[in-house]
Design a protein around this nucleic acid. Structure first.
Lengths: 245, 245
DNA sequence: CGACACTTTGACTGTAGTCAATGTAAGTGG
DNA sequence: CCACTTACATTGACTACAGTCAAAGTGTCG
């Protein structure tokens, strides 16, 4: 894990791509300056553990670029991804001594880190910041509950279609060749099949079969196993909600 | 839905059983008095809808007695319970115009209600109250993520065993005939089989079969279909985590 | 008693899991 | 450059767990 030499001298915040969308959006210029004093930039390689459930909480962070997964593992080795984070999401469990999950970089990731105690002191001081983080937590809870419905009640086909739509929504839309914005959309899957399976409560093989099915029915196209092209958005949305026509 | 005639004159808070454990625990005597001014007590019958996802948010509440389920329903009628609330839980989605779920009383329920706008104004005014609610939301998020693991990765047997343990933990423990606290514990199931199934992502039949299995292996005993006696806590805990010995 | 809501049980089916083999792409070293 | 390794993905054959459909059982209430 490569930390920048020391707390930022030249303030990254001025040029930060998530300055306004993330929790920092709640802060005034002076407040940002104070937050900047305790901030460290960090880069993580794919597969690196960012925070572990076996160690005390050391820091929190904003995700600036990249994708992070939150993982739970049982003693017998079963894994479940219980959250997927994209910029400008906030990562970490405030007001606890231990993380309830471990977080791992799914792609190469750039993080903006705040030390545990210092950050919680700032939450105390800047009530607007705590409020913003509260709202973010409420949104996360809503999403977690939506996902509970998916896990408990959707079929494998619906699950895979839903995940593709989620990732399409949350990653940059590139390669829109046609003028109509939703006619053909493409993106790179940040997750390997194993992670997709763990996020959906399925196995690798089932995910693969459903992807093949989506290809055959013309909803998507796949290049190099990772690049997804949504060729029929309506069909994909229909499959995500079992609107069989 | 039977509201008390008007905002409380005699303050219920003085004698409230959840005064200190719920979010009110964050408040001083004067603050409690101010909250008391906007509070209305309410009683709900089993099956009554407390808040709907189709109507704007009107109020929030503390659960004083009883059990409440949070429900999501898809167009084609599939249902999923995405949360189960016990005293002294807080019910409602602050800082949103619409509820992301509908809430229904599972048993006869006593609620302590706060009107939407008035309560959000108090959150603004009493930062300690907002902080407490934030902490409660963080705990709910942790629980939701634990449940995601259960839904995605546990077998029917583990699911049912886990739910029994959860309910045992969160409802009053009664009828502990033996001296050792965990040797034999009993409680009334607040949920019918259909709700258990919806909470676990199973069908009624599967739940019933797993209950029979738990009876046969001696982990639990069931009387009158609703009263559960945990006769072997260790066995039940083992089954909840697939610790097959 | 009968009606109703809920639960259990049985027989059968189907979806997704398991196990195993094959395929594909990227990277390494001779 | 090509064989080889490694990691990841796909496909096939078979299995099993949980779902479906249907019937019977249990408990409660008027």
């Amino acid at each position: 894990m490569s930390f920048d030499s020391s707390p930022d001298k030249k303030n990254h915040c001025d040029t930060c791509v998530v300055r306004h969308d993330g929790i920092c959006g709640a802060l005034s210029a002076e407040e940002i300056a104070e937050l900047g004093k305790i901030t460290k930039r960090k880069n993580c390689q794919r597969g690196q553990v960012i925070m572990s459930d076996e160690m005390p909480v050391e820091y929190f962070c904003n995700i600036v670029t990249g994708v992070v997964k939150l993982n739970k593992t049982s003693e017998d080795g079963r894994q479940s991804i219980i959250g997927l984070l994209f910029p400008p999401d906030f990562l970490g469990r405030v007001y606890a001594e231990k993380n309830p999950y471990f977080a791992e970089a799914v792609t190469e990731t750039e993080l903006c880190c705040f030390p545990h105690r210092d950050f919680e002191k700032l939450l105390e001081k800047f009530k607007g910041l705590e409020h913003r983080l509260f709202e973010h937590t409420l949104d996360e809870l809503d999403s977690a509950r939506d996902w509970m419905f998916l896990l408990g009640r959707k079929s494998a086909e619906e699950k895979v279609a839903s995940l593709l739509l989620l990732i399409a929504k949350r990653t940059a839309m590139i390669g829109c060749e046609h003028s109509s914005p939703y006619k053909e959309t493409s993106f790179d899957l940040p997750l390997p099949r194993a992670d997709i399976a763990d996020y959906l409560g399925l196995t690798i093989e089932t995910v693969s079969r459903q992807m093949t099915k989506l290809k055959k029915c013309g909803a998507i196209d796949v290049r190099d196993q990772r690049h997804i092209i949504i060729s029929d958005m309506d069909a994909l949305e229909a499959m995500a909600n079992q609107d069989v026509q």
